[in-house]
Nucleic acid binder design. Structure first.
Lengths: 224, 224
DNA sequence: GGAATAGTGTCTCTCAGACACTATGAC
DNA sequence: GTCATAGTGTCTGAGAGACACTATTCC
């Protein structure tokens, strides 16, 4: 009675970062070239099977994939959505529990062969339904940028308010009033000034450095 | 290489409704008594295995469970979260893709034996990690009530603004200003008046009847 | 008329947006 | 001093909260 054929169970991760050069706007997502069938040679999201003997839960699977395939540890990881259907994998009925993660630009370091950062504006054709997964992740990240501290996880330990403003702009794709932004962020209180620390600017006034008040995501207040 | 032992794959549904009697505040959730091990005799969320030969995707599984076990069709169904871990099911590593659904009070009709509506304020001990699933569903529904038309799916085809206000209050557990609520909702424009139709009140002024502008969830505007 | 609920007008306070202004560094 | 960027002050308009008020039904 309880023995049904089981679907394939995988975890895929949409890993976001920003280009280090401020000149290039917008988010980038990590793609790896598939080395096996199906979709051999196609770019895909990093992912893998749930290892029932190794992983305590699906978040563990996500972290194992990121650490093993890419050697990164991410400051922010969130479950995105689960894509489970008959058609999404030619090998059969499969469920992918998708996560997304934010990685500071500085932590980019060396990528293994076959992995690359791709601007979300110019995505190639992806394996499986991964295009849809990236699309949903982008919607989530952009939506959360309007009411949470999420974009701050794209920055390193310390950052200036202008840098934070820049990150929000690049994630949102719009430029709200900088003065309003400053007041709004300061009112939310999820960042605290690092006393006495200032940015080293090329040829202008240095800016106060801040850090996150805590490692958690903070949502802004909302009323009906 | 690609043959890993697969986790169990199930779908569970948190089905919400309101008591018909306006006197009783708050949401109710549907529980069914488990008739098999594990957790035999314990109340649990309606759910079941993914049937790879029957279900096109996990939303199909959710609808099949609701139709088969309870004979209901729901006007709103949304994927909630996936709970996948080694420990959540004594039979082994398991993934439950959880959904939540909203059912108008009037559609309650006859429930099968072993099923019952339970106020969320007085939940018993549940099977598996279902208490955590209900908790997350409640957080989602209450959060969405602050910025979307979600609570409207707890009402029937037509409803009055005072009824809608009552539903939002019961979901949110608070009583915002009724005048502000009216203005806010009218500005969002997700409900339209049914021309010439009014409620039949016992001994007071009848109210304008409204219906949803479309069958989709509508999110309110938000700025940063 | 009174009771009860539906619905509006209006004041205040907060906050986003706009934008002019001042502040502080490098040179 | 100039240039560049950091950061503030202030006005305005939109909207939430509070609450007094009017409107329409049944009795």
């Amino acid at each position: 009675m309880s023995e049904h054929p089981r679907p394939i169970a995988t975890v895929d991760v949409v890993l976001f970062t920003l280009a280090e050069a401020d000149g290039d706007a917008g988010l980038r997502v990590l793609l790896v070239e598939r080395r096996r069938e199906p979709f051999r040679g196609r770019p895909a999201l990093p992912g893998g099977y749930v290892h029932v003997d190794e992983d305590a839960d699906t978040a563990d699977t996500a972290r194992r994939v990121l650490a093993g395939k890419l050697g990164v540890r991410v400051p922010y990881l969130e479950q995105l959505y689960s894509f489970g259907s008959r058609d999404r994998d030619p090998r059969g009925w499969s469920i992918s529990v998708a996560y997304f993660a934010m990685l500071p630009a500085t932590a980019g370091a060396a990528l293994p062969v076959g992995a690359r950062w791709q601007p979300v504006a110019t995505l190639p054709v992806l394996a499986f339904d991964h295009a849809g997964i990236v699309e949903r992740a982008l919607m989530r990240v952009r939506d959360k940028a309007t009411y949470s501290s999420l974009p701050a996880f794209l920055l390193g330990e310390t950052f200036t308010l202008p840098q934070l403003y820049d990150v929000y702009c690049r994630v949102l794709g719009s430029r709200p009033d900088p003065a309003s932004f400053r007041r709004k962020i300061e009112a939310q209180g999820f960042i605290v000034p690092v006393s006495g620390a200032f940015s080293q600017n090329r040829s202008s006034r240095p800016a106060q450095l801040y850090r996150l008040a805590d490692a958690q995501l903070r949502a802004f207040d909302r009323t009906i």
